[in-house]
């Protein structure tokens, strides 16, 4: 089992004819992902990696029965591309694009509440169910099949923690990057809820970072609703207030909200051990299993 994606997921890649879209569509196919279509306005009728390209997501769904999309569209047009996915009633849209204006995302977020589509991202590395499907830019070779779920706001930090797990022979059910922007679709709580419901996920790793209050909300959710054990990691303990640490969302506000300490405290209060190093996170997971 897994959450959100598996080998039945039928993927349409929005922006498949662009540099990033083309490269990563190839990588996804190579990994074994069921990429059934591309969607690029004005490029209908072409083929990329043997995959038919359509002018609209609607056509791609009608012709190829796609049920998930991955968005590799430049920031100026990405919100529009996400709306297209939402309005086509796909089950899942994964927005990889970094740099979508926040006010665009507020509008997307509003629509999201009116549809049944799940949005992952934006500004995220995507999602992978090892051995079945990868939607996004995660390097497939570092993941392995197993019983640990992983959810993270950061891409490379995810790879680091997966590496620490893999070193010990601990594989993953599904790994999810939810993205580093201030407004995102799937939250920690959404992912944790799905992992809790997945019978094959025996433990969960949650990697948060400074900024916002998503980790605090996740901690409350874990404390109240989860039986599956969770190990945590929080990046940005040494970040000074008021400075944006790379991600648009990774900023400790002047009033002191969003600090690493408040997140670590909240997780500890919910019974979640938080590793001081990625290695320690793997130690905690090993103890759970």
């Amino acid at each position: 089992m897994s959450i959100f994606v598996d080998d039945d997921t039928r993927v349409v890649v929005q922006g498949i004819t662009g540099g990033e879209g083309k490269f990563h569509a190839g990588q996804m196919i190579e990994y074994g992902t069921n990429v059934v279509a591309g969607a690029v306005p004005g490029k209908g009728g072409q083929e990329v990696h043997g995959v038919p390209v359509y002018d609209t997501v609607d056509e791609a769904v009608a012709a190829e029965d796609a049920d998930a999309s991955v968005v590799f569209v430049p920031p100026a047009f990405a919100a529009d591309a996400v709306f297209e996915s939402l309005d086509t009633d796909l089950d899942l849209a994964v927005a990889i694009t970094e740099g979508i204006p926040t006010q665009d995302m507020a509008k997307v977020n509003k629509r999201l509440g009116e549809t049944d589509t799940r949005l992952l991202g934006p500004n995220c590395p995507g999602i992978i169910t090892p051995g079945e499907a990868k939607l996004g830019i995660l390097p497939g070779n570092i993941f392995s099949e197993g019983n640990v779920g992983l959810v993270s706001r950061s891409g490379t930090l995810t790879y680091q923690v997966v590496d620490n797990l893999t070193e010990r022979g601990i594989g993953q059910t599904t790994a999810i990057g939810i993205g580093g922007d201030p407004i995102i679709g799937t939250s920690f709580v959404d992912a944790l809820e799905a992992f809790e419901a997945d019978p094959d996920t025996d433990a969960v790793v949650m990697c948060g970072e400074i900024g916002g209050e998503d980790e605090e909300q996740a901690a409350r959710f874990i404390g109240e609703y989860m039986d599956t054990p969770v190990a945590g990691f929080i990046a940005g303990r040494t970040a000074p207030p008021g400075k944006r640490m790379g991600h648009a969302g990774a900023i400790v506000s002047g009033s002191g909200t969003g600090t690493a300490q408040s997140k670590i405290d909240a997780l500890n209060d919910a019974g979640v051990p938080v590793g001081d190093t990625p290695e320690e996170v793997a130690d905690h997971v090993e103890e759970f299993l």
Partner: peptide, 17 residues
């Protein structure tokens, strides 16, 4: 020097740790 915001932040934190 590193790649990716989360991992660079983590590297900073480890230096401190």
């Amino acid at each position: 020097i590193g790649n990716g915001a989360g991992l660079v932040m983590t590297t900073l934190d480890l230096v401190d740790y």
